[in-house]
């Protein structure tokens, strides 16, 4: 079971976690990402998020299906905030349930890494000193082809 949403409203993290509870699961992990006030000495007043919704949903479904194969997770819920997200507020919540904790922790970590590489969501860092869209340089070991299209890879198996 997989749930995904993009929302302009504050994320109810307890609700996100509750959606992955299952009688088959012995482990439930909830990750939340929050707006950090300082990044490498630069003060952030708030972040603004934008997304290409159809592709974001498709990519998250693809990542969920991969996570089921790699980690045998039972349920997963991903919620990403859009628009203005103030310091300390939650921008993303990822909840996963699995039979055992090792798979639950590993899958949540893996999902976060993949989301940050593959899912078309962008943040704009707004501060007193500077305001800019964040577009990271692609790392050499990321699994993309020459067109920038994400590729499935087993290199990051647990």
């Amino acid at each position: 079971m997989f749930q995904f949403s993009l929302t302009d409203d504050p994320i109810d993290t307890s609700l996100v976690l509750s959606t992955v509870v299952s009688a088959s699961a012995g482990a439930n992990v909830l990750f939340t990402g929050t707006t950090r006030q300082e990044t490498e000495g630069v003060i952030t007043n708030w972040l603004e998020y934008d997304a290409y919704k159809p592709l974001a949903e498709r990519e998250c479904v693809r990542l969920y299906e991969q996570a089921v194969r790699k980690f045998r997770i039972i349920k997963c819920s991903i919620v990403h905030r859009l628009g203005k997200v103030s310091v300390g507020e939650v921008s993303i919540a990822v909840a996963v349930s699995a039979v055992h904790r090792a798979e639950a922790f590993a899958s949540a970590s893996w999902l976060l890494d993949r989301i940050k590489e593959d899912v078309p969501v962008w943040k704009r860092q707004v501060g007193d000193a500077q305001t800019f869209w964040v577009h990271p340089e692609q790392e050499e070991n990321t699994s993309r082809d020459s067109n920038g299209v994400p590729q499935e890879s087993d290199n990051d198996m647990p």
Partner: peptide, 20 residues
């Protein structure tokens, strides 16, 4: 890159992402 488009295809440029 060689994918063929239609006049009504929805085309989007996806710069490096930074969600999370």
């Amino acid at each position: 890159e060689d994918q063929v488009l239609h006049s009504k295809s929805e085309i989007a440029v996806i710069p490096p992402v930074s969600g999370g």
